[in-house]
């Protein structure tokens, strides 16, 4: 069965969706990602959907869910590279994805995440660094 890889990069998790998502895949991604956030204590999640050309209301909801769940687990979510057609579809479906940060491409998404985390958890930054050191 297909699985969408979740890559860890420092305090961040990277998810690149390269295939069209079907419902079960999206559900798996949702649970995997939440598990992963919890396990790695990630501070940010970056989801790249530049290769996704079709979305439905279910997909939109899953993305929204992932963002809300991550926020509860103290991680910011950035969705990057959304295609114009996808954006219009989501708006027409009435899913403006409030609470999800967005960026034009991966590079800007990374910058945004770093800014958010600097502002949000300035004092925790050292702490996390220590945790990483002690773990290794």
């Amino acid at each position: 069965m297909d699985k969408i890889p979740i890559l860890r990069m420092g305090h961040f998790l990277l998810v690149t969706i390269q295939v069209d998502l079907y419902d079960q895949l999206a559900l798996n991604l949702e649970s995997d990602l939440v598990q992963m956030v919890n396990k790695t204590q990630a501070k940010g999640v970056l989801i790249d959907i530049s290769a996704v050309s079709i979305v439905d209301s279910f997909m939109g909801r899953i993305i929204g869910n992932i963002a809300s769940m991550s926020r509860i687990l103290d991680a910011q979510t950035v969705v990057v590279g959304m295609q114009p057609a996808v954006a219009i579809t989501l708006i027409e479906l009435g899913l403006p994805l409030t609470g999800v940060h967005t960026a034009l491409n991966v590079e800007r998404g990374m910058t945004l995440l770093k800014e958010k985390i600097l502002i949000g958890d300035y004092d925790e930054d050292d702490e996390t660094g220590d945790d990483d050191n002690s773990a290794e």
């Binding site: 990057v80 959304m82 114009p84 954006a87 708006i91 403006p96 967005t102």
Partner: peptide, 9 residues
């Protein structure tokens, strides 16, 4: 405006 925001702008 919402669609623009979704695009990351």
């Amino acid at each position: 405006v919402s669609a623009t925001r979704l695009m990351g702008a």
